[in-house]
Design a binder for these strands. Sequence first.
DNA 1: TTGGGTAAGTGGTCAAACCAATTTGCGATA
DNA 2: TATCGCAAATTGGTTTGACCACTTACCCAA
Lengths: 252, 252
Amino acid sequence: MAPNKVQVPRISDAVAASLERRILEGSLKPGDRLPPERELAIELGVSRPSLREAIQKLASKGMVQSRQGGGTYVTDRLESTFFDPWQDMMGAHPGLREDLLEFRRMLEGQAAEWAAERATDADLTRLTQAFDAMNAAFDANDLERRASTDIDFHQAIGEATHNVLIGHLSAALLRLMQDNIRLNLGELKSIPAAISLLKNQHAAIHTAIVERKPSAARAAAETHIDFVRESLAQSLRSAARRETAERRLNAD
Amino acid sequence: MAPNKVQVPRISDAVAASLERRILEGSLKPGDRLPPERELAIELGVSRPSLREAIQKLASKGMVQSRQGGGTYVTDRLESTFFDPWQDMMGAHPGLREDLLEFRRMLEGQAAEWAAERATDADLTRLTQAFDAMNAAFDANDLERRASTDIDFHQAIGEATHNVLIGHLSAALLRLMQDNIRLNLGELKSIPAAISLLKNQHAAIHTAIVERKPSAARAAAETHIDFVRESLAQSLRSAARRETAERRLNAD
DNA sequence: TTGGGTAAGTGGTCAAACCAATTTGCGATA
DNA sequence: TATCGCAAATTGGTTTGACCACTTACCCAA
């Protein structure tokens, strides 16, 4: 007969859902390596074949990726499905950058507000860790680490909102913008004055969230984006000037 | 290191591909029952665990469906393999629905506000057309048209914001939610009272935008989402009640 | 310091068994 | 003869334990 009755819960489904939840909620981040199958199986209280079936499910959804002998890693289909198409579009239509910044102003303002309202102590701990790491990267002037810790910081805020969409979107959009900036502008000049301002802005966001002041957190986040928007506009103007002076390079 | 080398072929992948081919080529038609795992494993020259991993892959793609003791069947609705990763995730984690609604409340509130501020006359014309079409679909109680015109209406608002991200996201998220509701709840009951309320809410949004009252537009949009959220919660409660009465099904 | 090589770690596969749900079919009963 | 009920066979679900293949990391020798 046709299979239409209610399904008995399958272990592999439950395990897949459990891992999926960890990924969605951020305790397993993109790029992270999963524990070895043998350990994970014990931790989850299932046999290794069952765990493997669950992993196959996630793999077929593109959420994880395994290499024999190497380990199993979290990919991120979630963000890429939403925003891969946007990447080339951003390159083709620079006007989108302004839209993106406007959108981020709303998104991160809301994220900061909710984070200040809802963060658990564990969230705040993680947030502070990310904040410290970011400051260290800024001080060291390590551009690569600056970018990644910046993402971590925003992601920590996103996770503290306890809204999966906010968490993934804010990090994804920041990443999208960083890539786009790098692709189209090269590295932004690191003017000491700007660095100092950025650090102050991040500190204001961090403090407001930790002290649980939602409206202050929102305001600080919006100020931050406004500053980024303005700096970016200036860089673009000078880049355009330079470009015009040097050479004619048409890209659209 | 990052997983970027070429993958060694996995047996379960090959087996999954083989079965998939049989299904796509028609030698396994929708509704057909697969041979027992033990036989199929021998026939394909692999062990049962490997075969099972392959079956899990197909199951997660929605191509087959297994019932303990009953057998494994080729899904008869192959067309619905249009799924996107978020869709089944919403099914697996109902909590996401609440996150999505909360996110939409922010998004559509902002969209309505911006639309009221920025809409051109052409935008307003298109918005009014979409609004009329939606009302007609609601009056005719044509569920299919109701869903599509609803999306059109929200998309028209999104376009009126002149922010590409808002426009695409609000329509995409609405579509995602509609599909999810249809998949997991069946059609929502069309209570005349609710229909009337929905029409009023849409009218309030439309009017506020046309009359260029940003804060009123935001408020109307937020009220709308709040109503949807509440209606959905009620439907879910009654669905849960029904389910509990019928059978005990634990999925966590 | 560097190079190579080995050992440990980790995913991939297999085999055999038992459990749990469903299906089938036989036999007893009306 | 028809039908119902129950038990056995069927079939997917899960576990254990073992071994293979590939990768990583470490250590020792040159």
